[in-house]
Amino acid sequence: MFLEVNNLQHTYMPGTPFEVHSLKGVSFSVKRGEFIGIMGSTGSGKSTLLQHLNGLLKPSGGEVRVDGKPLFGGSISLKKLRTRVGMVFQYPEHQFFAETVYQETAFGPSNQGLPHAQVVGRVKEALHQVSLDYEQIKDRSPFQLSGGQMRRLALAAVLSMEPEALILDEPTSGLDPRGREELLGHIEKLHREQGLTIIMVTHRPSELVPHVNRIYIMHRGKMTLCGIPAEVFSRSRELKEMGIELPAPVHLVEELRRRGYNLSPGKLTTEEVCKEIATKVTTPEEECE
């Protein structure tokens, strides 16, 4: 098991009137090379959970293990771990600080203490992975890029450390549909071609459906549902109660079924649902006869 979380608990500001129990005993595990989706309404503890996975937060109870070794009190160097488990925060472009795209991307690998030549190689490779042209962009200011480019640069700035896993906290928020599409394409490619383990938090179920192995649903500091997308999204009533939206195609099929159309549930993508509807609905010509 690559990442293991056992009965994880986290309390913010314990012992004050501001005390918040953000995680109340969360357990889950991720195998190498898996693509995991996490969903949950605001304040369900998703971001807190993510920050435990690379040791940015220390658990108040329970533990996190990487390759079987506990993160705290064990032999793991947190600094090294953070380069193995790359983390892309929400609005990652808000952390830009360097004068050039090159410096921004080189920050991670330089911190790893790599020699200059290797850092350059890493930067080239990382920018290439997110379809940014190294020669064209390396001397520009990161603050001058477009929104979508900034987001991809932020992703490259983490990829340049060559992590084994990528943790993404709502990577597409604030992007336009095209920027979203592009970024998701890159993430999916990293998973498929490089075998990166991916853990992604999102509010948009449609971003998870085609790619993920499993979806976890969080609600008020607990994992409430878990399974393959088809299983999870079949529990529409529970999801609604927890404030989680269904993928649009699932919602459509459900509405149609309620109105008496004989459609089979369990179809998740627009294509599948289109096909299902096309085969089940009688054509106007047939009706005329």
Partner: peptide, 13 residues
């Protein structure tokens, strides 16, 4: 604190 965490995640010392 968020920025500190983000830079620590990029190996900043």
């Amino acid at each position: 604190s968020r920025i500190v965490k983000a830079q620590m995640a990029r190996g900043a010392d």
